[in-house]
């Protein structure tokens, strides 16, 4: 492999990886933003008081939702 090919390869990878890194960053921000929205804006936190409730996914209720 000569130097020219090497440089192309590195540039190529860098360009592509920059785009994917950007995707990762956007997805991360979106995801954390969505969690924040769910918890702090919509207050949709279900509370479980017993193991049975947990196992059947039937919450006691939500603190702020209802």
């Amino acid at each position: 492999m000569n130097d020219g090919e090497k440089i192309n390869l590195v540039d190529h990878t860098d360009q592509g990886s920059n785009i994917i890194t950007m995707f990762f960053l956007i997805a991360l921000i979106f995801s954390i933003g969505a969690v924040h929205y769910r918890v702090y804006v919509k207050h949709t936190i279900n509370f479980f008081l017993t193991e049975e409730e947990i196992n059947h996914a039937q919450p006691l209720g939500s603190l702020y939702g209802n």
Binding site: F24, A34, F48, L60
Partner: peptide, 24 residues
Amino acid sequence: LFVLMLPIFILTPTHYGILGFNLT
């Protein structure tokens, strides 16, 4: 790697991620 991570990004904020809070 991104495709593998995508469900995490999308579904973690939903009730598939955290079902609720345990008071037991």
